[in-house]
Simulated scan of single mutants.
Amino acid sequence: MKNINGKVVFITGGSQGLGASISKRFADEGAKIAIFSIDTALDKKLEAELQSKTEVLFIKGDTRNSADIKNAMEIILARFGTLDFAINCAGVTGAMHPFVDMPENEYDFVMDVNVKGVFLCMQEELKIMLKNKSGKIVNIGSEATFTAGHPLRSVYCISKHALGGLTRNAAIAYADTGININAIAPGTMLTPLVAAFPQDQQDALANTRPTKRFVSIDSVASMAVYLCSDLANDMVGSIVNMDGGKTAM
């Protein structure tokens, strides 16, 4: 992909599920990778795979903690000297509750990770990119960015709608600085979590979309790389819908 090789990418939640696939795709393109995750003990297998292809750095921290994020940026600058791309992938679905029974602490948890965490990361990412007068930021949303979502996951839906607004607002605010900010809104993918479901539940989930299959993790990871390439220079505040046609129904 154009303009990826040798560049530095920061990926939150980059050691598991979709985040790990995104990390691998950037490694395939020759990018230098800084993975930010809450538990680096889970990263050893991925580290070995990535190190065979590129330079990789694992940083432990919580996206909800601004000090952790600032520390991560300092480590990245000390190691690589710059930051070119950022993929804000860390997120949670939260527990399932009827709307009227949603505990306040559950609301706070989901919103803190899915919205506040991305907001705090973007602040620090942008500080570096503004100095460079260039950069690409990609936020990972969900098909729930465009829909009412699951009736028992109201806060998840709220958080992903908020992420869409956050992406568009920041994209317009910095559109004339050489920085592109966009998002991807994927549908259900066959992540390790979903793969652990009984087959009948997997089939039911896949059949909720016109394609009758899960969204490809590799396709979403490739879109993240594309949005960081020069080919996407005119994409500003776009939220790329990759849900197998579900929101078109």
Rank of each mutant, 00 (worst) to 15 (best):
P198V: 01
S134V: 03
L46A: 05
E143Q: 13
I184S: 07
L130T: 07
V118G: 07
V118C: 06
G135Y: 02
A144F: 07
A206M: 01
A144L: 08
L227T: 04
V240A: 07
I137S: 03
A95M: 12
D112C: 10
V138E: 02
A95R: 15
A72I: 10
C89G: 07
S52E: 15
K127P: 09
N207L: 04
T54E: 05
A95P: 13
A204E: 11
N65T: 14
Q51T: 10
E104G: 14
A224M: 05
H161A: 08
P210M: 06
Y226N: 08
T93D: 09
S52C: 12
L130C: 10
K45D: 11
Y174V: 04
F146K: 09
S66I: 15
L18M: 01
V215L: 07
L205A: 09
D243M: 11
S37W: 01
I35Q: 03
K212D: 09
N241P: 12
I33V: 11
A175I: 13
K136C: 12
E124D: 07
V225D: 04
L152R: 10
T177W: 00
S15T: 12
L190A: 11
L227K: 02
A171G: 02
G61F: 03
T211L: 15
N207Y: 00
I75V: 10
K116A: 03
